[in-house]
Design a binder for these strands. Sequence first.
DNA 1: CATTTCACTTAGAACTCTACCA
DNA 2: TGGTAGAGTTCTAAGTGAAATG
Length: 792
Amino acid sequence: MNISDDEVPLNRSARAKSSVIKDEDSDMDMGDKPPSASSVSDDDYDEEAPIKKRAASVSPAARKKSKAILDDDDFDDVPLSQTTQALKPKVTKKEPKAKAPKKEPKDTLKKEPKDTLKKEPKAKAAPKVKKEVKEVKKEPKAKDDGTPAPEDNDTYKWWESNDLDGEIKWTTLEHSGVIFPPPYKALPKRVKLLYNGQPVTLPPAAEEVAGFFGALVETDHGKNPVFQQNFFKDFQEVLKEAGGCDIEITDFAKMDFSKMFAYFEEKREEKKTTTSAEKKKIKEEKDTLEAPYKTCLLDGRKEFVGNFRVEPPGLFRGRGAHPKTGKLKKRVQPEDIVLNLGKEAPVPKPPRGHKWGEIRHDNTVAWLAMWRENVLGGVKYVRFAANSSLKGISDFKKFEKARELKLHIEKVRVDYRQKLKSDLMLERQMAVCTYLIDVFALRAGGEKTDEEADTVGCCSLRFEHVSLKPPNTVVFDFLGKDSIRYYQEVEVDQQVFKNLRIFKKAPKKPGDDLFDRVDPSILNKHLQNYMPGLTAKVFRTYNATKVMQDQLNLIPNEGSVNEKLVAFNAANRTVAILCNHQRTIPKTHEAGVAKIQEKIQEMVWQKIRLKKLMLVKDLTLKQKRKGYFEEINDLTKEDERAVHKYVIAKEIEKVQKKFEKDNIKLKEAKQPLLSKEELKTKLDKIRELKKEYTKEASSGKPIDLHPNDTVEKLEARVEKLEERIKTTCLQLKDKEDNSQVALGTSKLNYIDPRLTVMFSRKFNVPIEKLFTKTLRDKFDWAIQSADEHWTF
DNA sequence: CATTTCACTTAGAACTCTACCA
DNA sequence: TGGTAGAGTTCTAAGTGAAATG
């Protein structure tokens, strides 16, 4: 009854396996469904797999095709259309609010003006004017209210305006264009690339490219063979184009960049020695040069520009196993650049002897300049800064959209839970996808080409990324955005587990798509039915802020600002973990942890020594305060020796460093230097100490450095140490917990800033402790509009 | 429609500044 | 008082999703 066309022919070939499938299914669908439907659909599922598998193993393109066909058929399915119809009334009800482009007569109306916009700028005028009327409404407002002159922008509070919609982003726009990186300056003659041990004189263009690599030889990129080969190929090309050099360079392995590398290091050292006065002067010069580019005039208001600097040439640093990593990113010329500004705005002067690629006047977009980059063929934009009104408005809209999801999330969840048992493969896959996106905050996961790193999101998960451990544990292991690993072992809904097993059923094999019928556009189209503008990414924003709010609600409103701050960061961390925001463990991390651990050990040892000393002074204490002295045997002999060694090593280092330093000073002052003898005496003293420690270890009686100290004094010192141990342990835990988690990303992009403002107000934590300067600027709208009662 | 293009958000790495500590 | 770890900022790669295109 529910069989779709494409599934019928498959049935035949799959029959042989149907019994196995039925077994699994019988435990799965019993009772919930009409038996006939369930058995039929189960058979169908099984048979679909081979199709996808074949498609998947051929090529991404082929995969897509087969998908498309299958999906089409599903859409034609009777039961499907019935179910979606059930949802439709809702959608149409909400339609008036949303101007979401649907398949309706409207659509054509909309498209037309846009088409004409692009193709013939002149035709633009007509449709624009209409929209401008809308926009103009709020303009006079701002102008009338505001103080007379250019400072208008300071008083323009867009969030107090109630008309933030509209295609048009601006009516007038003036800016100064972009700053180009300085031209290449040839290296000093003595700094040369070596090839096969011989110095090579390269044409400047080739030397520049070699230098790009030379600066990276010691980095992970420089050591990556793909990076090396991509670099080498492009380098050879540049060299050839520039006329070559005296030696033929054919083998990357024979290139020696050490001279170049050393030179760059030298330069860096040099830079360190510049005095603060010099630095200040350099900075001032830079500031005056850049000032005109830093701001622009948007509808007459001054706004900040984000990245007004054109990206300098270099080697493309792809993340993860990127096939194009190391390729040469060419220098961008003014001729490559498209400027976007108002019709009446003066066109900034291009660099001498150059022309701009194009001047555009498109007020439906929010970029000021753009160029095409040669490695991936992508577009780079110069845009407004994060604290600009346009960015603020879209940020605000994003969070309002996520807030709106609150009203629909229940329906969405009920629906996908129910559809987990749908008779249609498409619906089941869609339900599981929605579940994963909602519960585990996975990204949508669009298709990627083989020109890019192999990373996935929800819809693009493959067989090998998900393993199943009955009864209902799933292990996710895949590389997500930026090739960051997502590894989670989690328990899932029983029906989700069963579905995943079906989606993985043979003959599906590694390399095949888990969700062969779903991609982000299909999924998003479906999500629109619940709420206009609902897409996969909205769930991440919604859940991140929701989790944050729930976590903040658990924090007791008491204690010091610092304690509250720690609690806030802990809440922030749960969000970061949900979103899998990671950072590479700092290279210094392990050493840092070891150092803190040693410090703790030393303090523990000191504490025990003090307690032992207390007993030396008054043995009766041992009976009187049993618990207090229990720990004096906690430290093993081994631990003790380790601490001794550490303390001694530290002392020695200290003495030696001081010795060297003092001598340098004496030398500068032309005073006689300290002799080796003096150092030796000091070191000898430490050796004495070492001996004493050894003795102490065997006798168990600590040396009393201050024989006059009373028991009370000792106890006070113990207490102080305990305090320090506690804080250091906390610090260690914090360091460990945070070592792999990046809190910044969620604070910047996912957590509604008004929630943070609410926390600040309600808990009396200065906003400066929660938002850095940049964040305060970016979220000014939130700071000014939310109070202690605000809720998401 | 499926695919490509465009515009925008999101992301960790790399760099710079600053506060803290011996 | 300089050396450094961590905080803060900048840079640009890598996603998402809608619209244009053929």
